[in-house]
Write a protein that binds this DNA or RNA. Structure first.
Lengths: 127, 127
DNA sequence: AGCGTTGGTTGAAGTTGTCAACGATTTATC
DNA sequence: GATAAATCGTTGACAACTTCAACCAACGCT
């Protein structure tokens, strides 16, 4: 199990540097929904970190034109995070790379892969 | 799959702060072998980071008395990293906490857990 | 002996992370 | 409706991580 996580972590870091993004930036981009802007605080919660931390991360994502801050209509304190067109494109390519099965699992037989998928489904279905 | 990694990551961070160690410090301590000191460069390789990075991480682990730098007999350039008695104790408790099955998997039926274990074994056995 | 290489450290620069304090705004309470 | 309390995002201070380039000491080779 640890080995699997280790392999996944390594691949995650490799993909991040491949796109010249830092790990938290990749995580943020993956969490954000191009279809539906969300407040900063929601991103902070998803990333398990402080509000003040996402300020900086979003700053840098905004500098690269991947994300946009928009003020919300219903509450002038909150800022909604919208993924730009370019951000959505990067995000999609990122997802493609990250959705590839990690190396050790890719070598499994088709039956094992199916069985694994079914078990994973059962593990998460009660949420 | 991503959800599983996410859950594991969250637990990992929780355990780290529980022991008042930073994530890289936990990783380092987990990699090191109390039975067999290894050179710094080997730790750097295991952590997928620069040599200069482990210098600082080991500095702080040494400050807390969890790890010791010993000069190697065969080559006076290299420094062997040895886990202290206290370090080994923390390391063991850390392993206990990290070896607990992640939340979603713990709820699986015994048959599914066995099947999962067998699949994992097959995935890694060709290494 | 001399020269290139290697192992670890140092310094600079940038990012991540937490915490406390703050300004602007909203919501609750009187 | 005015005032107080709570909320959202930002800022500043500080510690840790990360990479890179430069460096020193020590090794190995010719």
């Amino acid at each position: 199990m640890h080995e699997l996580f280790h392999a996944s972590r390594r691949r995650f870091l490799a993909v991040a540097s491949e796109f010249e993004l830092s790990p938290p930036q990749v995580r943020a981009l993956a969490v954000l929904d191009p279809e539906r802007p969300v407040p900063m605080s929601e991103l902070a919660e998803a990333l398990h970190c402080d509000n003040s931390n996402v300020t900086g991360i979003v700053d840098r994502l905004e500098d690269r034109g991947l994300v946009e801050r928009r003020s919300a209509a219903h509450d002038r304190r909150v800022k909604m995070l919208a993924v730009t067109e370019r951000g959505a494109e990067i995000r999609a390519r990122l997802a493609d790379r990250l959705d590839e099965a990690p190396e050790p699992l890719a070598r499994l037989s088709p039956e094992d892969q199916r069985a694994l998928r079914d078990i994973m489904r059962r593990a998460l279905e009660r949420d």
